[in-house]
Design a binder for these strands. Structure first.
Length: 282
DNA sequence: TGATATGTTATCTT
DNA sequence: CAAGATAACATATC
C-alpha cells in the first residue's frame, strides 16, 4: 500500500537495474491489471524509470511507456537469480517463489531476468501508453508535494474555497499530490492542527506550518525507504523501509503524543482511519 | 461475523 | 459548473 515515499523508493531501486533491458516475453494473468496490447512490448527496450505523484513510469523505446499505479496492494519485484529488488505492499510475495498467486503480470527480459507485478486486491494497473497519453494523465494532476510550485500561497488560496476537513484537502490529488493517509496524519500532528478543521479555517500561518511538515514527513519517508508494517518481511533483501519506526500519529492509538504527552485517538474521517492528539492538535 | 486495510474514481446530490 | 458525500473496486487478515 505504497504512498509517495514507497513509490519513490521502488523507482530509485528499479532505475538502477531496468534501463537497457529488452522485453522478450510478457504474460498477463489478469486482464484487468493491464490496459493495452501487451504483445507490442516484445522487443522494446527500457530507457528510464521515473515517478509523478504515485505513478511509476517505465519509459520505453518507440515513445511508449508502461505507466503503473500500485494502489493499495501492488508490488513490483525484479528477479535475477539471487537478486530480488523492488517493493510495494508488504506481503509474503516478497519472499515467496515467483510467480505467486497474486502475480498479475510477468515480464521476462532478453537476459533472462524477470519483473513481476503482484496485486492482491487488483485495484492497481499497468497501462501501455504513448508519451502523449502519459502527458494527458499528468496534466490532470495537481503538482507533487515535492514540487516547489506548491507554496503556502498556492495552498491557502485553494483552501479558502474548501470546507472539507483539512486532512481530506491535503490528500486530494486535485489540490496537491503525494500525501497519503499515513503521512497526512503525521504531518498534522507535527503541525498541531486538527484533521477535522475545515480547510478554509486555516490561517496563512497554519498553512505555512502544515506545508513545512508535509514536506518534512515525505522527505523523511523517502530517506528511510518508506513505511513497512509487517515485521515478518522486514529485512528481506532490503525491501522494507524504516519510517514505521518514526511514526508520529498513524497507528499509535492510545499511545502518548510526542508533542504534549496527550493521548493519540483514532477516528474515521472520509472513510479513512485518522489518528491525532485531541489535546495539542487544534 | 464484521471491521479494517499505506488509493483513487464514478456517480449522485447539493 | 464546482464541491461534497458516498459507494465501489476485490481480497486477505484480525
Amino acid at each position: 500500500m505504497p504512498e509517495l515515499p514507497e513509490v519513490e523508493t521502488i523507482v530509485r531501486r528499479l532505475r538502477e537495474i531496468l534501463p537497457g533491458k529488452k522485453f522478450n516475453q510478457v504474460n498477463v494473468f489478469k486482464d484487468k491489471s493491464f490496459a493495452g496490447d501487451h504483445r507490442e512490448l516484445v522487443g522494446l527496450k527500457i530507457r528510464e524509470v521515473s515517478r509523478r505523484a504515485k505513478l511509476i513510469r517505465i519509459h520505453l523505446s518507440n515513445d511508449l511507456n508502461l505507466l503503473t499505479h500500485l494502489k493499495m496492494t501492488g508490488q513490483l519485484i525484479y528477479l535475477d537469480d539471487d537478486v530480488r529488488v523492488g517493493g510495494g505492499h508488504p506481503s509474503a510475495d516478497w519472499v515467496r517463489g515467483l510467480p505467486s498467486n497474486h502475480t498479475r503480470i510477468h515480464y521476462r527480459f532478453s537476459d533472462g531476468s524477470e519483473l513481476f507485478y503482484n496485486d492482491m486486491r487488483i485495484f492497481g494497473w499497468m497501462r501501455l501508453l504513448t508519451d502523449e497519453l502519459v502527458n494527458d494523465e499528468y496534466v490532470k494532476l495537481a503538482p507533487d508535494i515535492t514540487d516547489p510550485a506548491v507554496t503556502s500561497n498556492y495552498l491557502y488560496s485553494i483552501f479558502q474555497k474548501r470546507k472539507v476537513p483539512i486532512k481530506q484537502a491535503i490528500m486530494n490529488n486535485q489540490i496537491v499530490c503525494g500525501i497519503g493517509n499515513i503521512y497526512a496524519s503525521d504531518a498534522l500532528n507535527l503541525a498541531k492542527i486538527s484533521p477535522l478543521r475545515p480547510a478554509k479555517s486555516l490561517s496563512k500561518k497554519e498553512v505555512t506550518r502544515l506545508l513545512k511538515f508535509c514536506r518534512q514527513v515525505i522527505n523523511r519517508g523517502i530517506k528511510l525507504g518508506g513505511t513497512t508494517f509487517d515485521g515478518k518481511y522486514v529485512g528481506v533483501d532490503g525491501m522494507a523501509g524504516g519510517y514505521q519506526n518514526e511514526l508520529k500519529a498513524y497507528g499509535r492509538e492510545g499511545e502518548k503524543c510526542f508533542n504534549c504527552g496527550g493521548k493519540i485517538i483514532k477516528i474515521k474521517l472520509g472513510g479513512r482511519g485518522t489518528y491525532y492528539c485531541d489535546n495539542c492538535q487544534r
